[in-house]
Amino acid sequence: MSGEWTRYLVVALVPVLVVLAVRAWVMEPFTVSSDSMEPTISSGAVVLLYKPAAALDTFPNGVVIAFTSPLDGHATIKRVVAGEGQTVAIRDGELYVDDIPISEPFIDRSRIDATYLGPQTVPTGYVFVLGDNRGVSVDSRDYGPVPRTAIQGTLLTGRK
């Protein structure tokens, strides 16, 4: 009887341990708690945080990341718009990276008309992040570039 219980215990515990390991080191559900990424990601949405991406040396512009907010230490999500060495500016609501206008079809331009920033050069080891809902987002315009060491992973959103 003891061997049978051991087998049941192993069969029950192995899946639990696998799920915990995947959640700790690979992928974890993440609940969005603000509307700063609308319309791409709505408040209350559950997305997947891909953790191995946190170890990347660079993050492509346009990818949505989760990171530790420099304001309050909570997990935050925003879109990377510029990496180290790049110059970022916003002129009349339009994003420019290295003086090239960036197409952002997910932005509601009527809400960010007359917005200006920069130009700012992103320092080594940092990324510049912006929320898609620029009118309400608190992002690198407010707290500056985010250190790569604060990045927890990328979000698997299905939209870019």
Rank of each mutant, 00 (worst) to 15 (best):
I107H: 05
F30E: 04
I102S: 00
G83M: 08
R23M: 04
H74N: 14
L71M: 13
G62R: 06
V97D: 11
S42Q: 08
K78A: 03
A53E: 11
I107W: 07
P29F: 07
N133A: 02
L56R: 08
L117A: 13
P52G: 07
L56A: 14
E94L: 10
R109Q: 08
V136Y: 03
A45F: 07
N133L: 00
V129S: 03
F67P: 08
G44F: 12
S137Q: 05
E104N: 05
M37T: 06
V26N: 03
A75Y: 11
S69T: 02
L56M: 11
N133G: 04
D99A: 09
Y116A: 01
G83W: 01
G118H: 09
F30C: 02
V127C: 05
G44N: 10
S137T: 04
L49I: 06
D132K: 00
E104H: 07
I107D: 05
G83D: 14
V81S: 03
T115H: 06
G118L: 10
V127H: 06
Y96T: 00
P29L: 06
G125Y: 10
T31W: 09
P39V: 01
D113Y: 08
V46R: 13
E28Q: 14
P105W: 04
P105F: 08
P101N: 05
T58Q: 12
Y96P: 10
T31Y: 05
V47G: 00
D98W: 15
Q120G: 01
T68C: 01
E28T: 08
A24H: 05
D35M: 09
S34R: 04
G131F: 07
D99I: 01
R23H: 07
H74V: 09
D72T: 10
P29I: 05
T121S: 08
M27A: 15
I41A: 13
D98Q: 10
G93R: 05
E38K: 00
F59K: 02
L130T: 06
V47F: 00
S33D: 15
I77S: 14
V63I: 13
P123H: 15
I102F: 13
R79D: 08
V88K: 02
V47Y: 06
Y116T: 13
V80E: 01
E28L: 09
Y126H: 14
H74D: 13
W25M: 00
S69W: 08
D35S: 14
V64M: 12
S137P: 15
F128H: 02
V64D: 12
F30D: 01
S137L: 01
L130G: 12
F67M: 07
F128E: 05
V32N: 12
M27T: 10
S140K: 11
T87D: 13
T124M: 09
